[in-house]
């Protein structure tokens, strides 16, 4: 009896290691604090600290004559941000992001639907890797590949010439806004590369959303006499919408902040990212650059708020 009691409550472990282990087990809060301190310190100080420092600087202004930064609280920089040329940049970037998002949803849907509904076993794995590999392969290499494709002497021109469709490219390039000297220096080119690079970010959440749609809903719909188009519009699409919105968070946010794609494939008209880069670099106008970065943060804030209301986060 006494033996059983004695062994039910183990004696304290000896040694530093033993007592440390006991303390951590008895006081989970201490363990929690120990676990959380390094990551929170790192992210809190390194990341949030720099983010706040940046936002703070958007309330500074630059002295036009000396080029020095005036560290007094002012809204002058935000006034500068609202100049017509800067508004142009913002409008251009946001409309590009919107078009890319829309196109990504259209291209992603069939892939996601096929993978979710029809692909099984080996095919499923193949589809998954087929999306993951382009997603994770080097961003610059992907952009570079499109520079090769869209170049005037590149494969696309060659292909259209073989198909006797060169007139089509020429007609498209002679259009106002979307055209240009060649595809690699036009908005069309920028758009295609954006679409290509962010497409996998749209496919994955849409696929996840579609996988949760029970097959019998689709069957019930057609049993009740709906055509495939009606089933799509009234059953599939509403259920896939949270996934599309979740994917659009990525495509939208990534397009808003990118400055490399429009620099390599595109016109001389700036996007927000390029403007930020130019202002902080050669111009040395950190306050204006900081004010520019507030635009994507605010746009994404509203976007995320709207997405949350549509239940998009459950689809992530």
């Amino acid at each position: 009896m006494s033996l059983a009691q004695a062994s039910a409550i183990l004696p304290e472990r000896g040694g530093l290691r033993g007592s440390l282990s006991d303390t951590l087990w008895r006081k989970p809060t201490v363990l929690l604090v120990l676990l959380l301190t390094p990551p929170v310190l790192w992210l809190g100080i390194v990341y949030l600290g720099s983010l706040f420092a940046l936002l703070l600087q958007s309330f500074f202004s630059i002295d036009e004559f000396s080029g020095l930064i005036n560290r007094e609280f002012t809204f002058k920089t935000y006034g500068e941000l609202l100049r017509p040329s800067n508004i142009d940049i913002i409008v251009r970037t946001v409309s590009m992001a919107a078009m890319v998002t829309l196109a990504a949803a259209v291209v992603a849907f069939p892939i996601a639907y096929f993978a979710a509904r029809y692909a099984r076993g080996k095919w499923k794995a193949l589809f998954y890797l087929g999306v993951m590999l382009p997603l994770w392969s080097s961003y610059l290499v992907k952009v570079y590949a499109w520079k090769l494709i869209l170049a005037k002497e590149g494969i696309l021109t060659w292909l259209f010439a073989k198909l006797h469709l060169t007139w089509l490219i020429d007609a498209w390039l002679s259009l106002p806004i979307v055209g240009g000297n060649s595809l690699s220096v036009s908005f069309t080119g920028t758009f295609i590369v954006f679409l290509y690079v962010w497409l996998p970010f749209m496919i994955l959440p849409v696929q996840a959303a579609l996988e949760r749609v029970p097959q019998n809903l689709v069957e019930a719909s057609s049993d009740l006499g709906a055509t495939p188009a009606q089933t799509f519009r009234n059953v599939l699409f509403p259920l896939a919408l949270p996934g599309i919105v979740a994917g659009s968070i990525f495509t939208f946010s990534l397009t808003l902040g990118d400055y490399i794609i429009p620099q390599i494939v595109g016109t001389s008209h700036l996007f927000i990212g390029q403007a930020v880069y130019a202002h902080q670099g050669t111009a040395g106008n950190i306050p204006l650059a900081a004010a520019f970065t507030v635009v994507p943060i605010v746009v994404m804030g509203f976007y995320l708020w709207g997405a949350k209301r549509m239940g998009a986060f459950d689809a992530l």
Binding site: P39, L43, G44, Y47, S50, L54, S253, Y259, V276, P296
Partner: peptide, 22 residues
């Protein structure tokens, strides 16, 4: 907090760090 550095556009993370280093 963990997701934020990847959810915000990279240019924001980049310029924030750069100005903090400065």
């Amino acid at each position: 907090l963990v997701i934020l550095p990847i959810a915000l556009p990279g240019i924001i993370t980049g310029i924030a760090l750069r100005s903090a280093f400065n």
